[in-house]
C-alpha cells in the first residue's frame, strides 16, 4: 500500500482541453468595453506624443519672445496661442507631457512593489506582526496626501528626483492598506487552509496561492493612483517644489500662467485641461480593468 495509485497515467499535454488562461479572459472582457478601450487609446496617444515630442512640436518649447506674449488661441502659426513669455503653447504642452507623465507614472509602480510587499506580509502573518506593521503605516496614512507630499518635498528640497521620492512615499501606505485587506480576505479562504494542510511552507503558499489572487485588485487600485499622482505632481510643481522653470511641465505651466488668467483665460486653462484629460483616462481605464478582472461577470 505504499503507492495507493497503481498506474501513473500521464496524458500527453496536447490531449488535454485547456481553458484559456485568466489573463486572456481579462483581455477578452476588456476588448468588449468601449470606454476602457478609448481611454487606453488616448493614453497610448499621450505616451506617443511624449516620446515623439521633438518631431511633433512646431517650435522650441523654451524659446521666448517679448513681442508675441499671450497670443490667443487660434493665432496663425501659434495654434494654441503663446504663454506669458511668448513661448508656443502647443510645443510646451507636447513637451510637457514628458515630465508630467514621468511624475505621474513613475511613483506608482515603485510604491506598488513596496506597498504590496508590506501589505501582503502583514496580511498573511496576521496577529501582532500585522498590528505593528499596519499601525506604522497608519501614521503615514493619517496625513492628507497633499500635505504629506508637500512636507516631504519641502524637506528634501525641490527637484524632479525628490518630488518622485516624496510621491512614492505618499502612495506606499495607501497601497499597503489595500494589499493588507485583500490578503486578509484571501488568507481566510479554504484553499489557503488546504494548502497549509498539505504541509506547504508560508513562502510557497504566498507565491502560489496568495499572490495570484491579490495582485489583481491591488494593481487596479494602483492604476487609479496614477491620476492622483499626476495631480499631486502638478501641485508640487505649482508650488515650485517639483520641476523648475524653464522646463515644460503641465502643473508648472498652470502656475506660471495663473497671472495671465484675466488677460487670456483660455490659454491659461490649457495645461489644466491636459491634466484633467490624462487623469480621467487613467481612471476610466482602471475602472474597466476592475470589471474585466471579475471572473464571475
Amino acid at each position: 500500500m505504499a503507492a495507493i495509485i497503481t498506474q501513473e497515467t500521464t496524458l500527453p499535454r496536447a490531449s488535454i482541453a485547456r481553458s484559456p488562461g485568466y489573463w486572456s479572459g481579462v483581455a477578452r472582457r476588456l476588448s468588449r468595453d468601449p470606454v476602457a478601450l478609448i481611454a487606453l487609446g488616448l493614453i497610448v496617444l499621450l505616451v506617443a506624443m511624449a516620446i515623439l515630442a521633438p518631431y511633433l512640436a512646431p517650435y522650441d518649447p523654451t524659446k521666448a519672445s517679448m513681442i508675441r506674449r499671450l497670443k490667443p488661441v487660434g493665432t496663425p502659426g501659434y495654434l494654441l496661442g503663446t504663454d506669458e513669455l511668448g513661448r508656443d503653447m502647443l510645443s510646451r504642452l507636447i513637451y510637457g507631457a514628458r515630465l508630467s507623465l514621468i511624475m505621474g507614472v513613475v511613483p506608482v509602480p515603485v510604491a506598488f512593489i513596496i506597498g504590496s510587499a508590506i501589505g501582503i506580509i502583514a496580511g498573511y502573518l496576521g496577529g501582532i506582526t500585522n498590528t505593528l506593521i499596519m499601525r506604522t503605516v497608519d501614521v503615514f496614512y493619517a496625513f492628507p496626501s497633499v500635505l504629506l507630499a508637500v512636507a516631504l518635498s519641502g524637506t528634501l528640497g525641490s527637484g524632479l528626483g525628490n518630488a518622485l521620492v516624496s510621491l512614492t512615499v505618499v502612495f506606499i501606505p495607501q497601497i499597503a492598506r489595500v494589499a493588507e485587506s485583500v490578503t486578509t480576505q484571501v488568507r481566510r479562504l479554504d484553499y489557503v487552509d488546504a494548502a497549509r494542510a498539505s504541509g506547504a511552507k508560508g513562502h510557497t503558499i504566498i507565491l502560489v496561492h496568495v499572490l495570484g489572487n491579490v495582485l489583481g485588485p491591488i494593481f487596479v487600485f494602483a492604476t487609479s493612483l496614477i491620476s492622483v499622482s499626476m495631480i499631486l505632481a502638478s501641485g508640487l510643481s505649482f508650488l515650485g517644489l517639483g520641476v523648475r522653470p524653464p522646463d515644460a511641465e503641465w502643473g508648472l505651466m498652470l502656475n506660471t500662467l495663473r497671472t495671465a488668467i484675466y488677460v487670456n483665460p483660455l490659454v491659461a486653462a490649457l495645461p489644466g485641461v491636459m491634466i484633467f484629460l490624462t487623469s480621467i483616462c487613467f481612471n476610466l481605464f482602471s475602472d474597466g480593468l476592475r470589471s474585466a478582472m471579475d471572473v464571475k461577470s
Binding site: I16, D190, D193, A194, A195, G199, A200, T204, V208
Partner: peptide
C-alpha cells in the same frame, strides 16, 4: 471543506491544484 468554490484557488487549473500537495513534498 464544505464550500467547494472557496477551497479551490481560482487562478490554478484543476491539475495544478491537485498536484500542489505532492509538489510540496
Amino acid at each position: 471543506f464544505q464550500d467547494s468554490y472557496a477551497s479551490l484557488n481560482p487562478r490554478l487549473t484543476i491539475e495544478d491544484s491537485i498536484a500542489f500537495g505532492p509538489r510540496v513534498h
